[in-house]
């Protein structure tokens, strides 16, 4: 694979029509706002622990999104404060939350049947790495002294109709987290459909990696950072 030749491909007239761009990289909240905007009205959604949780701050009531939490609830509301805090009402991150009208509770096997059975439209997860074909690595660094913990990551990756990843594009050392093949232990094969990063939004799948938007960089500059061939997404951006 030659990064340079792919970079050149990306500059050909007519291929960039699907790319939108902004002048600066996106912060965590901007990214959360973008993910929230992309969730179709009426969706059933699971937001993973950490950065994905921020997405809930930007969902609009008109979107009519129902949030699922894998410990056994649909219709989860915002984080509880003050007198709302109830130790029996927590999210998957074990943070006290609230219930919205229409909420339901169910046991753990039912909760994961909701996932595995393909009933969730979208889950949003963090990641260490995503491969060009959508393999996800987000549960274990593989370090020999690490104590492994998986929780519901594999179930979410496998079960939701769409798996969105939110992450910074580069590690602290400047390495791309979008990779040819994951070097960390994988969570699921070919499961990721979109990757939202501070520098670009990527669509992943069997046909490779497409770029829908760039933030503070051009497609050529992005290609210099990412070691897999990138192409512009089709104009409809879907």
């Amino acid at each position: 694979m030659s990064i340079e030749s792919n970079s050149q491909t990306g500059t050909q007239a007519g291929i960039r029509t699907g790319i939108q761009s902004s002048d600066t990289p996106l912060g965590r909240d901007d990214l959360a706002r973008l993910v929230a905007r992309d969730i179709k009205p009426g969706s059933f959604v699971n937001l993973g622990i950490g950065q994905p949780t921020l997405v809930s701050n930007y969902l609009e009531p008109e979107q009519n999104i129902t949030l699922h939490t894998e410990n056994g609830m649909l219709g989860m509301g915002p984080v509880a404060t003050g007198g709302q805090i109830d130790g029996d009402l927590i999210n998957a991150g074990k943070i006290p939350v609230t219930e919205l009208p229409g909420a339901s509770y169910f046991h753990h096997a039912d909760s994961f049947a909701i996932m595995r059975g393909g009933h969730l439209d979208i889950c949003v997860l963090g990641a260490f790495q995503v491969s060009a074909t959508g393999d996800l690595a987000n549960w274990h660094t593989g370090a020999p002294d690490a104590i492994p913990a998986v929780g519901g990551a594999m179930d979410l990756a496998t079960g939701a109709k769409d798996v969105f990843v939110m992450m910074t594009l580069l590690t602290r050392d400047g390495a791309s987290k979008i990779v040819e093949a994951c070097t960390y232990p994988i969570t699921g094969i070919g499961c990721v459909t979109r990757v939202y990063t501070d520098k670009a939004v990527f669509l992943t799948g069997p046909d490779g990696v497409q770029v829908r938007e760039t933030f503070g960089c051009t497609l050529e500059e992005l290609q210099d950072m990412v070691p897999v061939p990138l192409k512009a997404a089709s104009a409809d951006g879907s």
Partner: peptide, 18 residues
């Protein structure tokens, strides 16, 4: 765990429940 005094069978949460 680090002292080797407990065994761990790690199971994905949904598989554990099922």
């Amino acid at each position: 765990y680090r002292a080797g005094q407990i065994e761990l069978e790690l199971v994905p949460q949904g598989n554990l429940a099922e």
